[in-house]
Amino acid sequence: MSDYSSVSQLLALSEAAGLPLWKTVQITDCAEQNMSEADSWAKMADMLAVMKSADAGYDRRQRSLSGLSGGDGGKMEDYLASGRAVSGPLVGRMIAAALKMGECNACMKRIVAAPTAGACGVLPAVLLPCGEVLGLPDEKLIEALYAAAGFGRIIAGKASISGAQSGCQAEIGSASAMASAAVVQLRDGTGRQMANAAALALKSLLGLACDPVGGLVEVPCIKRNVIGAVNALTAAEMALAGIESRIPADEVIEAMGEIGDMMPSSLRETAQGGLAATETGRKWGNGNG
C-alpha cells in the first residue's frame, strides 16, 4: 500500500482498498516501519494501557515541582460525585479525565505524548469516558487510536505539532482534531465523517497561542486539555450528524501551519507573551520556574 501525506490521500487509499480508515493507517505504518500487524496492535494496546494506568493512578494530593498545579482533578471528581454537575456523566467525566492526565504529566508521572506531553490529556479524556459510558471493549478504543494517529501524522507532516513552532493550536488543536476522528471511529463512522470532525475541531482552535507561565507545561496547558477534549466531542457529534466543514480538512491544516508561521515568537513557547507575560504570570515565572 502506498503512503499518504494528506487527508484526501488517506481517504482515497482507504476507499480504494475497501478498508476502514484505521486499518489503512495501521497497514501503511507497518509497511513503512517493517513491523507486523500483530506487533503494531500490541504496541497500540500498550499506549491505551499506559493511558488507563495513568488515569487510575492519579493522586489528588500530588503537586507539581513548581507548586503551580495539582488537585484539580480531585475537585472535579468530588463535584461530579455530589450529583450537582450540569453537564451530565459523559462530559463531566471528560473534564475530570483531562485535568487528571494533565496533572499527572505536570507531576512527573508516566504518560503517552499524544501528540505532545502538554496535550497528553485530550485523547484519553475523550476515549476512556466514552468507552465506559458507551460500554465499548478495548479493541474499539485501539482502533480509534489508530484513526487519531493517522490524522496526527498528516498534521505533523503538513503543518506542525509543536507549540514552539506553531503555537498551542498545533498541540491542543492537533490533539483535539485527532480525538474527534477517534470519536467518529468509536461509532464506526466513515473516513469522510472523520475528516469533517477533524476539520471542525481544528478550526475552532486556530490561532491559539502557546504562552505557558514560567515556561512550564502547567498553566494554561492542563486546563486547555479540557477544551481540547470537549471540542473534539462536539466536532465529532456534528460530523456524525452529517454536518460538513465548509473548508476541507487539508486546507484547515494548511491554514493552521500558515497561522503558526505568522505568530510572533513571544507566543510560541518562549514564555514572553500572552498569559506568561501577565502580571500574575510573571510572578510565577520569576524564581519559581
Partner: peptide
C-alpha cells in the same frame, strides 16, 4: 505521534 511513553512534564 502517539508516543513516546514518557515521564512528564516535557
Amino acid at each position: 505521534i502517539l508516543g513516546p511513553v514518557m515521564v512528564g512534564p516535557s
